[in-house]
Simulated scan of single mutants.
Amino acid sequence: MGTPAQLFWGIMFGAVGSGYFIYGKKQQAFVPLCTGMVLCVFPYFISNIYLMLLVGFVLMLIPYFIKG
């Protein structure tokens, strides 16, 4: 992590991701489970803050549009 903004958004996406992961595990729903895992990990691999925000918000919307 580089800037404070990257740290902040990494923590926020990780928190949302852990919520999706717990929900997906309890409901045995594959899409929120996988989305939660990806949300927790992806900030470590993307250093551009704008790309991180774009990817994070798209990932957060996936469980609303893909039911599975």
Rank of each mutant, 00 (worst) to 15 (best):
Y50S: 10
F42Q: 04
V31S: 05
G24R: 05
G10E: 01
V16Y: 05
G2S: 13
G56V: 05
S47P: 05
W9L: 09
L53P: 01
Y64M: 11
P32T: 08
F42K: 00
L51W: 08
Y64G: 12
L39D: 01
K67M: 10
P63S: 08
G24H: 02
T3G: 10
P4C: 05
T35H: 02
A29G: 02
M52W: 04
Y20C: 01
L39I: 08
Y44S: 15
M1R: 14
G10M: 00
V38S: 02
I22T: 13
L61D: 07
I11Q: 12
F45Q: 14
P63C: 11
Q6R: 15
Q27H: 05
V16H: 06
S18I: 10
V16K: 03
P4Q: 04
L39C: 07
L39N: 04
A29K: 14
Y20N: 00
G2Y: 12
P32V: 07
L7P: 03
M37A: 14
F21N: 00
L61A: 13
M12T: 14
V16F: 06
P4M: 03
M12D: 08
M60G: 05
A15F: 07
P4H: 07
I62Y: 01
I62A: 02
C40R: 03
S47G: 08
G68C: 06
G56W: 00
N48D: 12
F30I: 15
G17M: 02
A29H: 07
I62S: 01
Y64K: 13
Y23C: 14
T3W: 02
